[in-house]
């Protein structure tokens, strides 16, 4: 499906989505409470069939006090791809887990938890993935500091 058709199909699926600018492919923003239902429809709908979650990451918009979660989906069957974005508040970073839809999300969400401290509801095993288990803080947050880190001299 090309981007316009895809967008139309998504709009009928979920009227509350909006198009996100500045992306290298079709990108839509979904309200957080609609995410779980929207994602499972994306996978199960025959015309869409997004069967791969390529990547999942987050962006720390510290000035706007929010995290933006990014999901990059792709369909092997139809050959189209899509970026789904969700904004969650920075001081209460909770999002629904999609690991029951795509199994790989389990580790990807663990990594985002590790780096940004986003908490996933209904995640089977939310532990740190890359850093040591006793690590304090979440290093990819823009305001992260520790004793080891060197500040750039002005």
């Amino acid at each position: 499906m090309d981007n316009e058709k895809l967008l139309a199909a998504l709009k009928t699926l979920e009227p509350q989505i909006s198009v996100r600018e500045n992306a290298d492919r079709l990108a839509v923003t979904v309200p957080c409470e609609r995410l779980g239902a929207f994602m499972s429809k994306l996978k199960l709908e025959n015309a869409l069939r997004f069967d791969i979650l390529y990547a999942h990451t987050a962006i720390d918009w510290v000035a706007e006090n929010r995290f933006e979660l990014i999901y990059i989906l792709s369909s092997l069957e139809h050959g189209h791809s899509l970026m789904v974005c969700v904004s969650i508040p920075r001081d209460a970073p909770v999002a629904p887990s999609v690991s029951s839809i795509w199994r790989i999300a389990e580790w990807q969400e663990r990594e985002v938890y590790d780096m940004f401290g986003v908490l996933y509801r209904d995640h089977p095993d939310l532990r740190r993935l890359l850093l040591e288990d006793d690590w304090q803080g979440f290093p990819l947050r823009k305001d992260y500091k520790d004793d080891f880190m060197l500040e750039k001299p002005q």
Partner: peptide, 10 residues
Amino acid sequence: FIYHSYSTLR
């Protein structure tokens, strides 16, 4: 990675 790195050895 000398500045602002939380993990890279210098």
